[in-house]
Design a protein around this nucleic acid. Structure first.
Lengths: 221, 221
DNA sequence: AATATAATTCACTCATCAGTTACTTAATAA
DNA sequence: TTATTAAGTAACTGATGAGTGAATTATATT
């Protein structure tokens, strides 16, 4: 029990034990922190766990981010930046209004379906009344782009007679997101209450069809 | 500084200092715990705070509930029971299908508008993959009533020609709840991003109109 | 009045957690 | 080569948090 451990295997091909990699370390912390904050919320996530899972000394978190709250803010900013980036790649302006609205609705559904991390972070942030997001300088104009797109789609649709004319872009956008968001945000409790697994592929496909159909039906004149 | 405190005022009309009130104590703990879990999440809420704010010795929490998790489960069960109770009082079967669906949609919106506690609890529970709700024995059939109501509304509407005939009750119900839920669940982040306070009475009224209009438009044939 | 039971209090433990002090070592530039 | 800077480590602190042991006291029952 008390014999010294013989360093048999570890002695081979020893590169400098600790290669330094500032960017990599910071990125790894951020990636792990995103998972941890999403899974456990701000209060439930611990810097000790983040450090361990990122295979990094805890001190590094404070070296690169200063505090748990600042780390959380950067996680949130990155999540928003990702979402905005994906939206920007959507090219909603080229298609005809019905196709564009369809594409936006499907895109929203598919994004949430693929990864619920952003939903979890948003829920945590809203529980805290967005007190951290309010401190962000990078998040000001994050909505204007998509909002403007929706507005243009609605105008084209109203002009061509494809859509009714009294639609508000902001209200519609919230509804488009909402019908997908609620399904995925509450997928676990809904599954328990409803007695069926809502992440079953067949049910997901049914929901996707319903969501698109629901939105398109609502906007027709 | 070190003189004994003179018990001047407190000496008058002294009823037995600690009146015992099992039901009251338990109810107070539950009420405070509901607020605390909603505000801070399961991990963020503390039994010390619950005890202090309920003006109760911490030991009482363990006396009546056994553990923090069990307390949280009872909070959740009570919240579900309340929601179900309110739904049951709705009497959706008497009105004509359009009126009934309108009433359900408005009721859902108004419930969330009045109090977002239930939303917060649901979000916390979903972050934990409903692991606590799964342990509940009281929650099994909680959905069947409202689900059956929606189904009957849809059948009447389809028969009378007021609604399209291919609607699924479960999918529709999720959409009806979703368009209100997302607005209130994310009211703080949406307010920051959108640059306007979504809990402003004028905006609330606008949202309410939109939601009802959106749902009714979606179901017409 | 004596007894049993349940409500309540006090003082404690042990673990964990955010953040820090003080150091070591690799990479880089002079 | 050496000095400087930045990356990384180890070991700690002080606070707080969930949960408990053991007593005390109010109330109901006999």
């Amino acid at each position: 029990m008390l014999e010294p451990i013989t360093p048999a295997v570890e002695a081979d091909a020893e590169k400098p034990k600790t290669r330094r990699d500032a960017a990599g370390t910071k990125a790894r912390i951020l990636a792990v922190a995103t998972r941890e904050f999403a899974s456990h919320g701000f209060e439930g996530a611990t810097t000790d766990d983040v450090a361990a899972k990122a295979r990094v000394n805890k001190r590094m978190i404070y070296h690169y981010f200063g505090s748990k709250e600042q780390l959380y803010l950067e996680v949130l900013e990155q999540a928003y930046a990702n979402a905005r980036g994906a939206e920007a790649r959507l090219k909603l302006d080229e298609a005809d209004p019905v196709a564009a609205l369809t594409r936006l609705t499907e895109f929203t559904f598919d994004s949430f379906s693929r990864d619920r991390t952003f939903i979890s972070l948003l829920n945590t942030e809203n529980r805290q009344k967005a007190k951290v997001l309010k401190k962000s300088s990078r998040v000001e104009d994050m909505n204007s782009t998509i909002m403007a797109s929706v507005d243009r789609i609605l105008q084209k649709g109203a002009a061509s007679g494809a859509f009714r004319k009294d639609l508000d872009a902001f209200q519609l956008w919230i509804s488009v997101v909402g019908v997908s968001y609620f399904y995925f945000s509450n997928i676990h409790t809904l599954s328990v209450i409803g007695g069926r697994k809502l992440d079953d592929p067949a049910l997901l496909a049914q929901r996707r069809r319903h969501v698109v159909d629901f939105v398109l039906s609502a906007v027709r004149p």
